[in-house]
Nucleic acid binder design. Structure first.
Length: 722
DNA sequence: GTAGCCTTGATG
DNA sequence: CATCAAGGCTAC
């Protein structure tokens, strides 16, 4: 039985998909080779030919590799469809050494991401790493030669927060810290400070190997506490500037989950741990990434850092700080870059430069793109290098877009929520010195704040909500009161980078389509490119790999155009009256009328508008995408039951998400699902238009194959759509 | 574009 | 009138 008859698809399409699926296994540079080259090499790919020759070449290569047997292709498909998500990591500029280390630590992609984020991994830099592995803790020792890091590890086990200090170290810390020691952050900060001090001393004396943990601990006891005071200092911004500054970037608990810092906490190194989290019996391990701002070697990445593992119980942890407290806010470093805070700006205490940066960015509607993995660590010395990550940090730390006045009126008091609260909580000047830490502050991602943002928000707000929700989950504890994000949705979200346009050749986006044919060609190229990405995305979806390859292909054939339509709506959710086909090109209904597909664009605009009104967030968007894909009713499926099971799990996850995150929008789940039939109508219309306007000379790419297949399926009444 | 300083104007 | 959080100005 031929491949065609067996699967009901043409050999060319099958090969195209196979090529996409197998490309990463066939080449070392998977991303480049997996995608059709658009304008990447103009000598090879004319704008209108869409790499047809390359595609054919690759198909032939693939054919020869597999000896063109159906079994070979299928097995290759299967093999690669089941490729673990870990391949994601290899696509994001992460060194293989680091990946190996991470992979051996934890297989979950979340851990990988958290770990990468934790380490601020980069391929840049060229400083040697001084390694010191003192313990066999969960923290891996990174010996990546290209990393600008000095990684030391210390584990202090069974450090319990008891009423009475249990050992010299704790006593020392207790004596030196100006904060109450019943907070996790105090302990971490104090230990971190000790470790930083100790490490700095160690560096100076070029000590490296053969030092026992107890010796190091003892050394740290001998250090003075002046570093500690920089972070816990309660009344001296000037002092903080004059001493080495320690910034704790991340807390990672023993599950590899990131414990995020409070959004509205300008001080940035205190956080609230639920009293129920951890206990004397089950101590929690946190990993802390430190930075000494005075020891900058690489302006882009962590100038000096240490991975320190602290194991302790937080059973006595208590509420810590009041972020709105002016004294504390002014004495802490800027939560965005660590510079000196100049006042309360746009919702949080920041330095003057971050205030100005935020203002300029919002007022001038600037959009930045991080050239790296959007995980640059921002400090006062490198903050100019990556405005994208700086702005993200501004938002994550709680700077409010709505604090920027659209009418640019000067003076007066602002009335947005955060500012009002801040003013209300302001401590009278005469009382400031007396004021100690106050009530519990809202955690980053507290539901109320998020949903408020979501209700009022722009897309950036919604994205932020997603980020916050995403991160918040990692620190959820039973009493946090933060709705959890179903794991399935998080897993799906982790695959979004596969669909990113970040790797699109810049020139392909810059070539403005001046006339109809150019725009048409441009759209076809984009669609083609995104189709390949869709296939790669699908194969990595959780549980999708368990579906037979034939069924996977059927599902993809069934939904590809709906998926593209949905992504167009999502892209356009904040551009009313425009469908954003890319970051640079938008289509209005008027233009669409001129081009002959007004109906499609108007329908897309309507859906985008409905999504906007529903405040659909990123998690809901990705869930809808997978729901479009996982349709057990597609004719010809061999294992519809498996697919139905997956569908049920996903709908449950989405329902749980919408009801917990948007309790005030009881019908959100249903409203979201109601948009899917309309997407199908749109995709039908679009395909109809496209197939009728296909120039006969158009090269036979994946898109054309799918279009032709659709047409054929409808025409001959075949049970398969392709 | 950045960032430090200045001006403005509502508020208590 | 002091405060302070906005926007504006301008040297770099």
């Amino acid at each position: 039985m031929s491949v065609h008859s067996e699967l009901g698809i043409s050999p060319a399409l099958l090969q195209a998909i196979a090529q996409t699926l197998t490309s990463s296994a066939l080449t070392t540079s998977s991303r480049d080779s997996a995608l059709p080259t658009i304008a990447k090499d103009k000598s090879q790919a004319a704008p209108h030919s869409l790499g047809s020759h390359q595609l054919k070449d690759r198909i032939e290569a693939s054919m020869s590799l597999n000896k063109s047997s159906a079994g070979g292709v299928i097995s290759h498909l299967l093999q690669n469809l089941n490729e673990p998500v870990a391949s994601l990591i290899t696509q994001s500029n992460v060194s293989s050494h680091a990946i190996q280390s991470l992979a051996s630590t934890e297989n979950s992609s979340i851990m990988s991401q958290a770990g990468l984020s934790l380490l601020g991994l980069s391929s840049s830099g060229a400083t040697t790493t001084s390694g010191l592995n003192l313990t066999n803790t969960s923290v891996k020792h990174f010996t990546q030669p290209s990393m600008v890091m000095s990684n030391d590890e210390i584990t202090i086990t069974n450090f319990l927060l008891k009423d009475e200090p249990s050992d010299d170290l704790e006593q020392s810390i207790l004596q030196q810290s100006s904060q109450p020691m019943n907070t996790v952050s105090s302990v971490l900060t104090a230990f971190a400070s000790q470790h930083m001090k100790e490490s700095l001393t160690k560096k100076t004396h070029k000590q490296s190997h053969g030092v026992s943990a107890s010796q190091l601990q003892q050394q740290s006891l001998d250090c003075s506490a002046d570093i500690i005071s920089t972070n816990n200092d309660s009344d001296g911004a000037n002092e903080a500037r004059s001493q080495p500054q320690i910034i704790i970037y991340r807390y990672i608990n023993s599950n590899g989950q990131e414990v995020v810092l409070p959004a509205s906490s300008p001080q940035g190194n205190d956080f609230v741990v639920s009293e129920s989290e951890g206990s004397s019996d089950t101590p929690t391990t946190y990993k802390v990434l430190l930075q000494s701002a005075d020891d900058v070697r690489d302006s882009n990445h962590v100038p000096y850092s240490s991975n320190v593992t602290y194991t302790f119980s937080s059973s006595n942890a208590a509420p810590v700080t009041d972020s709105q407290n002016t004294v504390d806010g002014m004495s802490r470093p800027c939560p965005v870059c660590g510079d000196k805070v100049s006042g309360y700006h746009y919702g949080i205490f920041t330095c003057e430069s971050c205030k100005g940066f935020f203002k300029r960015t919002v007022q001038n509607k600037k959009t930045f793109v991080c050239p790296k993995a959007s995980d640059c660590i921002i400090n006062s010395l490198n903050r100019k290098k990556c405005p994208a990550c700086r702005f993200k940090q501004c938002l994550v730390m709680g700077m409010k877009l709505e604090a920027i006045r659209q009418d640019r009126t000067r003076g007066g008091r602002s009335s947005y929520d955060g500012c009002v609260t801040h003013l209300k909580n302001r401590v009278p000047t005469f009382d400031k010195k007396l004021k100690r830490v106050g009530n519990r502050i809202p955690l980053l991602g507290d539901v109320s704040d998020q949903s408020q943002d979501a209700r009022e928000g722009t897309k950036s707000h919604r994205h932020l909500v997603a980020i916050l929700n995403h991160d918040t989950h990692r620190q959820t504890s039973p009493n946090c009161g933060t709705p959890q994000i179903p794991e399935l949705l998080r897993d799906i979200m982790n695959l979004e980078p596969l669909l990113s346009d970040d790797d699109l050749p810049a020139e392909s986006l810059m070539e403005a389509p001046f006339h109809e044919q150019a725009l048409y060609s441009y759209m076809m190229q984009l669609a083609e490119l995104r189709l390949y990405k869709l296939v790669r995305w699908a194969r990595n979806l959780p549980q999708f790999g368990a579906i037979s390859t034939d069924d996977q292909i059927l599902l993809l054939q069934n939904c590809w155009s709906e998926l593209i339509a949905l992504s167009l709506c999502w892209r356009s959710i904040d551009t009313p009256n425009q469908i954003s086909i890319s970051t640079t090109h938008h289509i209005t209904a008027e233009w669409a009328q001129h081009l002959g597909f007004e109906d499609v664009v108007v329908r897309l605009l309507n859906i985008a508008e409905k999504f906007r009104k529903l405040y659909m967030d990123q998690f809901e968007y990705v869930a809808l995408k997978v729901l479009l894909l996982i349709t057990p009713d597609v004719k010809g499926l061999k294992e519809p039951r498996k697919i139905r099971d997956f569908q049920e799990k996903l709908t449950e996850a989405l329902l749980a998400y919408t009801t917990s995150h948007y309790p005030h929008m009881k019908d959100k789940f249903g409203q979201l699902l109601l948009r899917l039939p309309e997407l199908s109508r749109i995709s039908f219309l679009s395909k109809d238009i496209l197939i009728k306007s296909l120039p006969p000379s158009l090269p036979c790419g994946l898109l054309v194959e799918l279009l032709k297949g659709d047409n054929k399926g409808e025409g001959d009444g075949s049970s398969l759509s392709l």
